[in-house]
């Protein structure tokens, strides 16, 4: 459903992404792996329309996204949980979740989706009236994921969900992503530098280095790959 081909993107005269191509099927979890500064977040920004690609194509359900703005892309069902969560810290948890309903359809379904989000993350219901900034890092990540789910994603992009979180919380969040993919057919693009965790959750993966894809394969192929072992897993 998502097909990225020959994507180049960068800031001003500095090009960061070079010829990025990858695919993602319905209900599949694909990991984009790479260390800090490899260009992962730039890629997320280019796919979600927050950064205009210099060239290349991003097609989602056979529709070209590369020329669309971020709101149009959001409307077509690509919703992201951004790096660093980007919550509205002085607003309550509930208000943050309300902001996730960005169009008429999601506003109409809000109450149902809110109930589902609370089932995923029961803690958020207890904290609904609390300012989001007063929550722990893990709870804030839950708010960010729940906010994205309220936008009814067809493709959910998780940008660095492990950043600054305890391992068991990362597992919980990846567990939610796996269930969503399996039961609801939501595709998940998991952008991570914690390669062990990402490959444990993903079906396939791509490795980005210096803005280029250098390796791709199924999760087990990548886990067994000599370069991945040496460069990322320290084995």
């Amino acid at each position: 459903m998502l097909k990225v081909e020959g994507l180049h993107a960068g800031y001003g005269s500095v090009n960061i992404l070079w010829d990025i191509s990858f695919t993602l099927e319905d209900g599949e979890i694909v990991a984009i792996l790479g260390s800090n500064g490899a260009g992962k977040t730039t890629m997320v920004r280019a796919v979600t329309g927050m950064l205009k690609p210099a060239s290349g194509s991003v097609s989602f359900n056979n529709e070209e996204m590369a020329k669309k703005n971020s709101r149009m892309i959001l409307n077509s069902g690509i919703v992201q949980v951004p790096e660093g969560r980007q919550l509205f810290t002085e607003m309550t948890v509930l208000e943050n979740l309300q902001m996730g309903a960005f169009n008429k359809e999601t506003k109409i379904h809000f109450q149902d989706n809110l109930k589902k989000a609370y089932q995923w993350f029961p803690k958020l219901e207890e904290r609904a009236k609390q300012a989001a900034g007063t929550l722990s890092g893990g709870e804030q990540q839950m708010v960010a994921v729940a906010r994205a789910l309220i936008g009814e994603p067809k493709l959910l992009i998780l940008d660095e969900p492990s950043l600054g979180l305890a391992p068991n919380i990362v597992d919980d969040i990846l567990q939610v992503a796996s269930t969503l993919a399996k039961n609801d057919g939501i595709s998940v693009l998991l952008v991570e530098q914690d390669i062990t965790k990402a490959l444990a959750a993903a079906d396939r993966g791509y490795v980005i280095e210096n803005g280029r894809i250098v390796l791709e394969g199924t999760a087990s192929e990548l886990q067994a790959n000599e370069h991945v072992k040496k460069a990322y897993l320290g084995i």
Binding site: M50, R71, P82, F88, M99, F102, R147, G151
Partner: peptide, 16 residues
């Protein structure tokens, strides 16, 4: 309020 607290977050949730 959302834009004033977090412009990036505002763009993420599709605020114009």
């Amino acid at each position: 309020r959302a834009v004033s607290q977090n412009p990036v977050g505002a763009e993420v949730v599709g605020i114009d």
